[in-house]
Design a protein around this nucleic acid. Structure first.
Lengths: 344, 344
DNA sequence: CTGTTAGCGCGTTCAC
DNA sequence: GTGAACGCGCTAACAG
């Protein structure tokens, strides 16, 4: 029914190039290029002719050709382990904002928590982007070094590789979990369970490191293998009940939600019978129920912003490579309270 | 500390090209190309030399150059309105699977529910991808037509443009909401509130269309402007209580969760005092609490799979352009029940 | 089976 | 201020 004027060039036709525009406007391709990119002053009359030729023909510059000629793709890549975790979309928003301000589009890819495919996807991204942001990378140190040494701009988010200078921006999970431990200690908790995240997760290791340090304050944290989704938390709840603990700290809020659901189904009251604490504070706008959850919080938008800016300066001139760490805060809400008289 | 052999070529050096490989291996660039792409048979000895030269120099083909020479980018683009909604990551997973099987990477972009930026991002994607998947596009019909007529492969997801043949794959929201209405009617509900989604949402319009048709069965649905996030649902809960309805249908599960949280805080019991029904069934693995929510469900992986395959066949030969619709199912869980004796 | 040649579409020197 | 020529890195058609 509807058929715009553009329908003339059917589906199977050669795409219109800068040459076509030049011919139509009666100028050279260089002039067209200049008009479109504002590279140099052009006679207003010619510019007008170019503009209308562009409009008439529906010309769109070919990204690949531009990239080849300019020597840069005009895009940055972002690799995340799991898009289903609201954490990453939040980070992505501020990354995109920064990138757009620099005239770059952002290309998002998801590794599904798999270290091997993560490595391949990262390689892929490096081939077609000017710089890459690796969020919470799961690949091992060797692979990371291999990638970083390619001489391609890379910034790590939530991962610090000890002994190596790869620029990174991370949340201070160690500090965050330390706050959580302090909170629990002051409430009177002594025996705590930690629902552990992915083994390859640096953030997870940092949390555990904090627990080990907190042992000096008389708090005993048992690590229970779990995972990163609500489902994992739900399934791990049984193991928690066997441990005779008075509080549970979860790898992240999603896991905490899952665990809470299972624990409540099992007849436990939170926080009367058991305190539950999460991490990330993904609740704010997404899950109102989470306004209840005591958790360690951080500004995800700030994390994304700094990471993107870091990548930009890396792509411009070489910025510094010192790891940067962002503080976390404790958000005490309704799921943490003093332990019951007879815990367990 | 660590410094691999690749460190020799510092950060600011010319990237190694196919020419360098050829020279190093003592063969022509075409032979290198043939070895790398398996385009033609090559003497095993030469192939070996090429391989090791590639490894030695750490050569990675330039994506832009490949794209230019081949005439295709080797990537598809996917545009979604909101990555924070678990709905889209789920769709993305199956899209990625299909794309990867066809040797294409996928480029994800987010429009933040904004029609204008959506149009621009779509244009961007078309410039650097071989095909584009527009998920739940919010832009108006005119813009969509404009885009579709560019002669670039485009497939719509969850949007059907009447009177125009743009290939699309959508969930049958009309059918889904009709099931919901039937369920409510059989439970005895007569007065129902609908927490409406984004105005520009086709899916939202389809739901409303279903309510209008259901009026014939004696069910009266009041549309309350709301939004697409849990926060929106939370904030709209007050308006629901004023309406004297015995049931609430939400634009999606996120909204339903938000509304439920607010309603429960206000002292209402669900489903005793009020039934709540969602849409999308995003709960399965993400939010265990949602196992409680009665909702209209659809196979998101199937949606993504079909959409991606459709795009692939569109890029190969011209496939058909008939809109395809996927059925939805009703998942009756714990948030729907017969109305209280004295509703309101 | 291999090397040589010619573009792919665009930006960017150069002379004019 | 403008056009002509070259090169970006790679693939593909062409001879050999």
């Amino acid at each position: 029914m509807v058929s715009g004027s553009a329908a003339k060039r059917g589906a199977r036709q050669r795409r219109v190039t800068i040459n076509d525009v030049g011919t139509a406007a009666g100028v050279s391709t260089s002039t067209v290029s200049r008009v479109l990119n504002g590279t140099a002053r052009v006679d207003p009359e010619l510019a007008r002719r170019v503009q209308s030729a562009v409009a008439e023909l529906g010309y769109r510059p070919n990204a690949a050709a531009q990239g080849l000629a300019r020597g840069e793709a005009g895009a940055i890549g972002v690799l995340v382990p799991d898009l289903s975790n609201p954490y990453f979309p939040d980070v992505l928003k501020s990354v995109s904002a920064v990138a757009r301000r620099h005239g770059r589009r952002v290309m998002v890819m998801e590794s599904d928590e798999d270290a091997a495919s993560e490595y391949e996807l990262a390689e892929d991204l490096m081939r077609c982007c000017d710089g890459v942001l690796l969020c919470s990378p799961r690949m091992d140190r060797t692979a990371l070094v291999d990638l970083a040494l390619r001489g391609h701009p890379v910034v790590l988010v939530n991962r610090i590789v000890p002994g190596l200078s790869i620029p990174s921006v991370s949340a201070d999970f160690y500090g965050g979990m330390t706050l959580v431990c302090g909170h629990l200690t002051q409430l009177g908790h002594r025996r705590v369970a930690y629902l552990s995240g992915p083994e390859a997760s640096w953030a997870n290791a940092e949390r555990i490191r904090a627990f080990e340090a907190a042992a000096a304050f008389g708090i005993d944290v048992t690590v229970i293998p779990c995972g990163h989704t609500a489902r994992h938390g739900y399934d791990a709840a049984d193991a928690v009940r066997d441990r005779g603990v008075s509080a549970v700290v979860a790898y992240n809020d999603l896991v905490a939600f899952g665990a809470m659901a299972a624990l409540e189904e099992a007849g436990l009251r939170i926080p009367e019978d058991l305190s539950v604490i999460g991490c990330d504070d993904i609740s704010v706008d997404d899950l109102p129920s989470s306004r209840r959850l005591t958790t360690a919080s951080m500004a995800r938008d700030e994390l994304g912003r700094q990471a993107a800016q870091r990548l930009e300066s890396l792509m411009a001139a070489d910025g510094d490579t010192e790891p940067r760490s962002l503080p976390m805060e404790l958000r005490v809400r309704l799921t943490s309270a003093p332990p019951a008289a007879s815990p367990g």
